[in-house]
Amino acid sequence: MKIAIASGKGGTGKTTLSTNLAAYISENKNVVLCDLDVEEPNSGLFIKGELIHKEDKFKMVPKWEQDKCTLCGLCQEACNFNAIIKLDTQIMVFPELCHSCYACSELCPTSALPMIPEKMGELSHFQLGKISFVESRLDVGREQAVPLISQTIEYVEKHIIDNTIELYDSPPGTSCPVIEATKDADFVILITEPTPFGFHDVKLAIETMKKLGKEFGVVVNRYGIGNDDVVTYCKDNEIPVLAKIPNDRFIAELYSRGELIYPKVPEVKQQLKNICDYILKLKEAKGV
C-alpha cells in the first residue's frame, strides 16, 4: 500500500511524520520509507541505515553531432521547450530545458541528435531493521525534480516486495513535483499546522488531492498554537483528522538534533498509533 505524506506548505512536519511513522510501523512490520523531496531530502538525517545500494540517476538529453547535421532546423521546430536552438552554423542544446521527449532526436532526418544520459542525481537504498529506506538527491544546479521523482518511484516498485506499507515523503507545494509524488498513491496524508499559512496551504493541498481523485486525511502538527480553523474546516467538510501532534518546544528540540520523537514523547506515540490503525484498516478494506 502506497501512502504519500504531503503538505502544501513547507516545514509543517512531513519528514518528522514520515520518519517517525516508518520507525513506529517497523517495530512490528516491514515498511518502506522513500524520500521524494529530492531538492532537499531530509529523512536520511533521522533514519540512518546500512547502505545496500547506490546508483547515479540520469535523464536523457540530445547531443548534437556536427558531422551528421544538415542544419535543416527541424529539431528546433519540434522542440516545445526551447531546449534546442539552431544558429547559423551550429545547434545549441540546453539540457535544463529539455523534457526528454525524444522528438528532436527521433525526427532528425540524419540522426544527428542521439539521446545520451546526463546525470541529474543519486539514489541510495539503506536498510535499518525492518525499514527499507530509499532516497534520491537532485544534483544542485539541476532544475527538474520530476524525472528523478518518477525514477525513484520506479526503483521502489521494482525492488520492494508486495504487501508492504510504502511511505513517500513528498516535496512541498502543489505543482508538478507533488503531483508526480502523489499520483500513484493509495492514500495521502496531508500534514499542516493550525496557523493562517498552514490553513491556506492545506486548502490548496486538499483541492489538489480532490482533483487527483485521491483519498486523503489530515494530520495537524503543532496542535495548540494558532487557531481552530483547520480542525473546523476538516469537520465541516467531512475530512478525517487522523492525528493531532502537540505544539511542544521539546519536540522541536528533538527534531533539531535529528532524533525521532515518539520514543521520548508518549503522546506522539499514541498519535502515531491512531494513524497506523487507520492505515491498516484502510489497507484491509482496499486489499492492497
Partner: peptide
Amino acid sequence: TEPTVSGLHDLKRVYKLVKK
C-alpha cells in the same frame, strides 16, 4: 535558516546554488 540538522543540511545545498 534554523538551527536544526535539516535546516543546516538544506542551507548548505541552497547556498551551493547561490554560489553558482
